[in-house]
Every structure is written in C-alpha cells, then in structure tokens.
Design a binder for these strands. Structure first.
Length: 599
RNA sequence: GGAUUCGUAGCUCAGUUGGAUAGAGCAACCCCCUUCUAAGGGGUAGGUCGUAGGUUCGACUCCUACCGAAUCCGCCA
C-alpha cells in the first residue's frame, strides 16, 4: 500500500487499484511482469469521457500486451476477477470492448466524501504529506518597480503568485511568500530626471495619486529621450547617469528625493496588496543587494568563472547555447541579473530554503535559464530546485499594451472599472443594506471577478484584455462562482429559520443524476489541487470549480432541497449542499477569493 | 543564427499527463421564474484540433519538418 501513500485522498481509486492488482496477478497466474505495480494500476484508472459510462474507466490494452493476451479477452477476465473481489467500492463493472467501465457504489462514495467535507477533514488530506511538511518553499512574486505604472500585467503576477502560495500551503508545504521591489535602476533616474527638468508642476502634497504621477513622469522621460536628436540624447543620458550615481552613492538632493518618492510608490503597492488581500512574509529590495552583487562578481572573477569581455565581466555560456551572462557592465554597474545572483544566495543561506519559485513574465525565460545555470556552476545545490513560473502578457485586442500607444491600463483603473460595474448590480440592495455592507460586498465581488479573470487562463497563455468581458458576470466568471456560493447560503439560512438540520444518516438517498454528478465533482477536488500544485497551474482549480458550480446549478434547478419529497431526503440534500458550499469556499480561497454570503 | 511559448467552434478559452462520439462561456435562435436568488437552468446550430509526415492497438496530447502569431538573446529592468 505504501506505493499509494500520496494518493490516499482518493480512497476509492486506491482500493480499486489494489483489487485490480490482485485481479491481474490471478489472470497472470501468479507472476506479474515487474513493470506492473500498484502505482501503474492506480494510474490506469481513468475517467470515462461520459459520466453515463461509469465513474472509472479501465482501458485494458496495456495489461493485455504485458501479459500477452488479446485486449478484449483481457478485459473479460479482469471483469470476472473484479466481480469476485467483493470490493465495497465497486457497484458494477461493465464490459465494453477492451474497456472496463466501473460504477462505484454510491453509498460508499457519499459516506466517504460528504462527512469529510462537512467536518473539514477532507481538506487536510493533502497537507498531511510528510515530505512536503519538511520542504521550505520560497515563492517570489509581484516584483514591482517603483516610479513606474503598476498595470494590469503586474496584477496578473500578483494573483498568480498569491494563489500559488495558497495552493502549496494546502499541499502541506512550508511556504514563504516574498516580494522583491525594484527600487533602484535607470528607470528611477529617468523618472526623477523628468521631474527635475521637464515637468511644469512639481510633486507636492496636493497631487492626489503620487505613484501614478511618478509613473507618468517616467513615460514622459522615455518619450523625451526617444524624440531627442543624437546630440541632445547624449546630453540627456549624461544627466540621467549623474542622477543614477547620486542615488547609488546615497547622498545629495536626488537621494533625498529618491527616498520620498520611493515611499510614495511603496505605499501605493501596499494599498493594492491590501485591496487584493495579498500578504508577503518578507520584502527584498534591489537597493539592498547591489553591494553584495558587486562582491559576488569580484569573487567569481577571482575564481575565474567570470571573464572579461569588451570591458564587461560575465559568464560565457555559449557552449550551453545560453550566450554570455553579463554580470558587470563596462561602466562598472550591475545589471539586474547579477542582483538575482546575490538575492538567490541570501535566499539559500539566510532563509535556508529547499525550493525557490520565481513568478516572472515569460519574456525572462532566457534570463532565468542563465541564472539557474550560473547558480549551479557557482556550486549551489538548490539551483536544481529553482523554478521559473513564467506567464504570458496581458495584451489588448488590438495588440500589445504600451504606455506609448496610449492603450495601457493601470491596475487601479481596472479595479475602478470593475467596482463601478459591480455596484450597478448591487443597487437592488441599496434600501436593504447599509453602506458598509454594500462596500464590502462590492469589494469581494470585484476582487473575485478580477482574480478569477487572471487565474482562469493557463499561465503561459496571453490574456487578451477586453474591458467589456471583465465586467460581464455571466458564464465562466468569478461572480458566477460566487453567485453559486450565495445560493447555498440562502438555502442554509432558510433551513436554519425553519429549524431544519442536515443529516448524514440518509446519504444513500442521493441517487438523482444531478446529485451523483455533483458528488463526483466534490470527490475530485483534492486531485485537482494536487495537480495544480505539481504543475504550478491555479487555472486547473478555477476550471474545476467552474464545472463543479455547473453541476451544482443543475442540481439546484432539477431538484428542490427545502421541498424535497421526504424529510430524510431534505436532510441528505442539505448535507450535500453544505459539502458543496464548503468545497467551493475552500477552492475560491485557493484562488485568493472570498465570496460574499449574499449577493 | 540560438532559446521559448502559442495555434482547438464566428469570438474568448477548457481538454486531469496517450484512450471511447471533441467541451464550456460569449454572440445567434428556441424553451423554463404563482416554486430554495434568472449574475441561473435546458435545448438548437456551430469543428478536417495550423499543415504534412512519423511513433502504436489508439494522437488535440509525444517526435520531426514546414506555415502563422508572439517574446527573449552584453551594457533597460
């Protein structure tokens, strides 16, 4: 049984796998080939393409081949053995060609799943994994640059990273969420340069959104530079370079201005994270690691791992088709990749982590290949446990989003668009609810709409940002899932008013097709979260929840809970409803979403 | 030239690690609120899974080539 240790969240499949293994041994007359073990049996059990076919499907081709039998005959013999196994999970086994379709014993399923989802034990099955408990995983995400716009693309990163943290924690890992703020570099010098030389009005207390204002100055600086003729360009770059130096030397008026403006931006980030209910355990800052990164370069020049090339220093990786990893520019400053080396060392040494995950856009795939290879060559064992979760850009229907083209949308603008739309829907409650409740519900709905929109797509696909779709709350959307949740709560409230209690005594009455289907979706929840964790894909949870909600809403329409035919059936349906509500809430939590109780 | 991702219905996307007849949501058309929230449910229509080969009992899934879209590859992060 120890082979299936990691799969105990699915007792039915584990049990079926054992019966299958025994059945195979009988069919093989004692000697099974070594490549057929319990795990192979477990993985051979699949889901049929249609639920009317059964709960588990077993294609027999592979076993037939291994035991040198005809597939159809193999299936027949296995059916005979499974029928004789008296496994309580097996309802019936249907033979169809070389496929065996297994219907589980519904009584056993409902008995083993619904109580666990009601008392919460079902959600702890993955977290008890002992290996994961000992593994410290640092997940770095968000990494915003100060003095730059925080646009919707940055929002996708935050949603992804935060959800990943929750998913890893659910799977029992020791998770450390960290941020890495880009508070140093040319972009800041450019911003301050524009403020100093080319802005009519200085930054005062009167400016309402200071971070946004600074972001606009950065954009301004870029267009100024782009439009300048060659002579001007040289002059501008000298001015910018001087500002950069001043900041790095930590003295003078630009340093003072950096401190103040930097804080404005950090405050702005905090507001966004709070609104999103995203929290970090630790913040790293680029400005903290620049000194260490210079030392690293010296250290590895001395060890002759880094070599000089055209006045710059770096690591020649051309034999690995990774080009030249530049660690020090010819002017002596360090590019961001070098700071990543220094930061990785801090993570490994000071935080003693086992795994390191970087949530960064797909345009940096090449850089992370270089970085991980460099870390490996520098002797860090953990380099093998580094993973770059890359994700696609957020683009506009007409193409790439860019500040210059005037089609970029800041994350705050998105928030406002969605909040406004949500409030229109909530108008129906304006006489019933006080303002605080209206605001709170609007906030939850807007967060859910945005996060679901960001997470429902596969990470490495681009998201086409169309504002119209982000405020459409029908079908596959965050509000649809939250609405499904609210529907469970209103029934539970009604039940409470009437003094009706749920009961686990008559779960075997849940035989309606919509009930069976919903139960199956609940049963698959843990499997989905495990898959999402192993593949770094919150999107699979989002999709599974969507289909679970579809099953629930069908159930909702096809049968009545409170007006069930008998009291026993009503109590059983309340239990199923409760199990669904809990699971949906837990699933939404893993996406970073808190649903309102009523909407 | 090198690295990487994507191509599935008119549009936006799923497809649980190679399984059976390809799945949703928008948009279109038709039904269902005196019944637990219609931000809901059901139905109709819509497909040569970019193209061509290969691997095998079986390929949207894996391999190769090509076509198309995008990103990155020494002084921006």
């Amino acid at each position: 049984m120890n082979q299936l240790e990691n799969y105990l969240y699915d007792p039915a499949k584990c049990s079926l796998a054992e019966s299958l293994y025994k059945a195979l041994a009988v069919v093989a007359e004692g000697t099974l080939p070594p490549d057929i073990d319990l795990l192979v049996c477990f993985k051979a059990l699949e889901q049929p393409p249609e639920k009317s076919l059964g709960d588990y499907a077993l294609p027999c081709f592979r076993f037939a081949k291994a035991l040198k039998k005809i597939p159809n005959q193999m299936a027949e013999e296995l059916k005979r053995e499974l029928d004789a196994s008296s496994n309580p999970w097996i309802g019936s086994v249907i033979l169809k060609g070389a496929f065996l379709n297994i219907f589980t014993n519904q009584k056993e399923v409902s008995k083993n799943i619904i109580p666990l989802l009601i008392n919460g034990e079902g959600y702890k099955l993955l977290s008890s994994h002992s290996t994961n408990n000992k593994t410290k995983v640092m997940i770095e995400f968000s990494q915003p640059n100060t003095h730059k716009e925080f646009h919707v693309g940055h929002g996708r990163n935050v949603c992804l990273g935060d959800s990943l943290c929750r998913i890893f924690a659910y799977n029992g890992f020791n998770v450390i969420p960290v941020n890495y703020i880009g508070d140093e570099g040319t972009h800041i010098a450019k911003c301050l340069w524009a403020v100093e030389h080319y802005t009519g009005e200085p930054l005062t207390e009167k400016v309402e959104n200071k971070a946004e204002w600074l972001g606009q100055r950065y954009v301004e600086a870029n267009s100024k530079l782009k439009d300048a003729d060659d002579e001007k360009k040289i002059q501008y770059n000298i001015e910018i370079s001087a500002i950069l130096k001043a900041i790095e030397n930590k003295s003078g008026k630009y340093y003072e201005s950096w401190k103040i403006t930097r804080q404005y931006c950090l405050d702005d980030f905090s507001r966004i994270y709070n609104w999103l209910d995203v929290h970090f355990e630790h913040y790293f800052y680029e400005s903290e690691v620049s000194v260490a990164s210079q030392q690293i370069v010296d250290e590895y020049i001395a060890k002759s791992l880094f070599v000089e090339d055209n006045g710059a220093f770096g690591f020649d990786m051309s034999d690995k088709k990774l080009g030249f990893f530049m660690a020090r520019k010819s002017d002596g400053s360090t590019p961001y990749v070098t700071k990543d080396l220094a930061l990785a060392r801090v993570k490994f040494n000071d935080f003693d982590i086992d795994r390191s995950i970087y949530v960064v856009g797909s345009e940096q795939i090449f850089h992370f290949k270089q970085l991980f290879y460099a870390l490996e060559q520098m002797g860090f064992e953990q380099a093998k446990k580094c993973y770059h979760l890359s994700y696609g850009l957020v683009v506009r229907p007409e193409g790439k989003m860019s500040s210059r083209a005037g089609n970029s949308i800041t994350f705050l603008q998105l928030i406002n668009i969605v909040v406004d739309e949500v409030k229109i829907y909530l108008e129906k409650y304006k006489d019933e609810w006080d303002n605080a409740r209206l605001e709170d519900t609007a906030h939850k709905l807007a967060v859910g709409a945005i996060k679901y929109g960001m997470l429902q797509a596969d990470p490495n696909k681009e998201i086409v940002f169309d504002p119209k779709e982000w405020v459409s709350f029908e079908g596959n959307s965050g509000p649809y899932l939250m609405y499904s949740y609210a529907r469970t709560q209103s029934i539970l409230i009604k039940a409470k008013e009437l003094g009706v209690e749920l009961s686990l005594a008559h779960l075997d009455l849940l035989v309606h097709e919509s009930e069976r289907d919903l139960m199956r979706h609940l049963y698959d929840f843990n499997q989905t979260v495990l898959y999402a964790c192993e593949n770094y894909k919150p999107s699979t949870i989002a999709n599974h929840l969507f289909f679970t909600c579809k099953a629930y809403n069908r159930f909702y329409n096809e049968v009545s809970v409170m007006k069930a035919e008998t009291e026993d059936l009503r109590a059983a349906r309340l239990a199923l409803l409760n199990a669904f509500g809990n699971t949906l809430k837990k699933g939404l939590y893993l996406l970073g979403i808190t649903p309102p109780e009523k909407m």
